[in-house]
Design a protein around this nucleic acid. Structure first.
Length: 528
RNA sequence: GCCCUCGUAGUUCAACGGAUAGAACGGCUCCGUCCUAAGGAGAAAAUGGGAGUUCAAUUCUCUCCGAGGGCACCA
């Protein structure tokens, strides 16, 4: 990566690592810049401008025109303009080989969605779903081993509640306020007719219903292009015969972190973290969700030996982050190995007013509906371009109306334009030659190359800070450069060597865009 | 009451403590013999209020205002 090469040069001159290498958004600031002069200026008590000038001169000398066509000192920054020949070389490198990311490879467990099987997936589940799916793709791209996991919450009160709701709906029990409602409950009554007649055990009916709902959830996820490797059932893995729960209690007991109070077992969280003491085993002998979750994470880290676990949760669970971290710490696991990403809730707006989505009351827009209305690509991009921190407002009517204006089409159309030229030109390029790409000279060609070389940086950065929206926006930036190139330069009918150079550029662009599309999980259309 | 998010153009969203705060949609001006105009060029338009730290603050700290979400022997 070029940033690393720039860093090396600076280290050579300054004698140590200093400052940051920034990827410039603006062409007049070059491709990269460094803020090292600001930091040096402070130490030396000199104005940053003169330090920058001095540094730029030394870098220019050290480089000898190899990497940079221009090294500039402006307003205290050193700006680096990559030489066109180097741009060509890097782009070929990125487009043709499996790019070698230099990272410490890890075994990562990525758990996301994990919606309770007590109802269909809502479009809000899509937010975490798309995020997790794309994050897994990026982590894999840079070389990590990733397991995509769905935790099936199929044990506990909500399953019995679901069963009772179905019994009530079918007229076999009185209805209650807290029961699940909505069309899907009626559907479940029909589907489970026989069981309702025969057993009438709410627990068993709830479990059968959960199985049906899980199948539905799996179909919805598949439809949304969200993939999982492991479906981890709480009931089967954590509640069955030889379970981990007693093991956790034993570990905690050995560590002296359990106390008995009011007939229940408590974790002394206050001893290990700034947390309130929490119940582990209720006075009725049942484990709390907290204890089960500790067992689950023990399973991830100790039994399955993941180096890292990433959990993606909705904002309604954010109060639980500190608790689980302290729980993990209590069983001797380094809490930093557990990364919890919170996605903010999506507010549903209809006719200018907020509708409170409630799975229990049956008021929600399902993920399936969303995709049916706006399409997978549009839905994905809509969520992916925003950070998980944003409180989003979602108006289905508006989304339908605007889906045609979704930026995803801007990006895909840019791609289609490239394909279209390739097809019309009947070119048979198999390998992109660096020497061919080096013939590119015009501004729009070079700025497209400049966008393309950012690919490894974008991927690596995202694999480190999990800001997946960066990639969606990067795709749009490439698209802009493509449209610009398309408007400014013609390909077919130009002189042979110019045409070939541009075709090579198009092939490289197409390959890199396809890589991006694959990560983002959006389709690469032939035509639009 | 305590805790966690978030307040940026008319709207929906960007911006590892860095340069002139970027896009898209909407409104306004242009671009049509030519690889799909689902495009391009241009102008207008924003950091909730107030302090502080810093060479530099949308970003960090404090405070106020506003929005959302949490504070169970529920999951």
């Amino acid at each position: 990566m070029i940033e690393e090469e720039i860093k090396k040069i600076i280290i050579k001159i300054v004698g140590r690592e200093i400052g940051k290498i920034l990827v410039s958004e603006r062409a007049d600031f070059g491709n990269y810049s460094s803020n090292a002069p600001f930091l040096l200026a402070k130490e030396r008590k000199q104005p940053p401008e003169s330090v920058a000038k001095e540094l730029a001169e030394k870098i220019k000398l050290a480089d000898g025109g190899k990497l940079f066509s221009k090294v500039e000192a402006v307003a205290g920054y050193v700006n680096f303009f990559i030489a066109p020949s180097v741009l060509a070389e890097k782009v070929v490198h990125i487009a043709t080989k499996k790019y070698p990311f230099k990272i410490k490879k890890q075994k990562i467990n990525l758990e996301f969605v994990s919606a309770n099987p007590t109802g269909p997936l809502t479009m809000a589940n899509g937010r975490g779903g798309f995020l997790g799916d794309v994050l897994a793709n990026v982590l894999e791209l840079v070389g990590h081993k990733v397991v995509r996991e769905y935790y099936i919450n199929d044990a506990g009160n909500q399953i019995r509640l679901l069963g009772e709701s179905i019994l009530a709906e079918s007229g076999n029990a009185p209805k209650k306020e807290e029961y699940y409602q909505g069309e899907y409950v009626k559907d479940l009554v029909k589907a489970l007719k026989k069981e309702i007649q025969n057993k009438k055990d709410p627990e068993k009916i709830g479990r059968s219903a959960a199985d049906l709902l899980l199948k539905e959830i799996q179909a919805s996820l598949k439809n949304a292009g969200i993939n999982f490797d492991v479906w981890y059932s709480e009931f089967k893995n954590l509640r069955g015969g030889k379970n981990l729960i007693s093991k956790i209690l034993a570990i905690l007991g050995k560590n002296g972190l359990i106390m008995e109070k009011e007939g229940a077992k408590w974790l002394k969280s206050s001893e290990i973290a700034d947390e309130k003491d929490r119940v582990l085993v209720k006075s009725d002998g049942q484990p709390t969700y907290f204890l089960v979750d500790m067992a689950y994470h023990y399973d991830k880290f100790v039994k399955r030996k993941f180096d890292k676990a990433i959990d993606i949760w909705g904002a309604d669970h954010h109060g639980y982050v500190a608790r689980l971290k302290s729980g993990v710490k209590a069983i001797g696991i380094e809490p930093d190995k557990l990364k919890i990403i919170i996605t903010q809730l999506v507010r549903l707006i209809e006719g200018g007013k907020e509708i409170r989505m409630s799975k229990r009351k049956g008021e929600f827009i399902t993920l399936d509906e969303l995709i049916r209305e706006v399409g997978v690509d549009s839905a994905r991009y809509f969520f992916l371009m925003n950070t998980p921190d944003t409180h989003m407002d979602f108006d289905l009517a508006l989304a339908k109306e605007r889906s045609i204006k979704n930026p995803v089409y801007y990006v895909q159309y840019a791609y289609v334009r490239m394909r279209s030229i390739l097809e019309k030109s009947k070119s048979q390029i198999k390998q992109i030659q660096i020497s061919t790409l080096r013939k590119l000279q015009s501004e729009s060609e070079l700025s497209l190359l400049s966008e393309l070389i950012k690919f490894p940086y974008m991927a690596r950065q995202t694999s480190e800070d999990y800001q997946v929206n960066r990639l969606a926006r990067y795709a749009a930036e490439i698209a802009r450069a493509i449209h610009n190139f398309y408007e400014k330069e013609r390909v077919i009918g130009e002189q042979k060597d110019i045409m070939e150079a541009r075709l090579a550029l198009i092939v490289a662009t197409k390959i890199i865009l396809e890589k991006l599309f694959k990560i983002l999980g959006i389709s690469a259309p032939e035509k639009m």
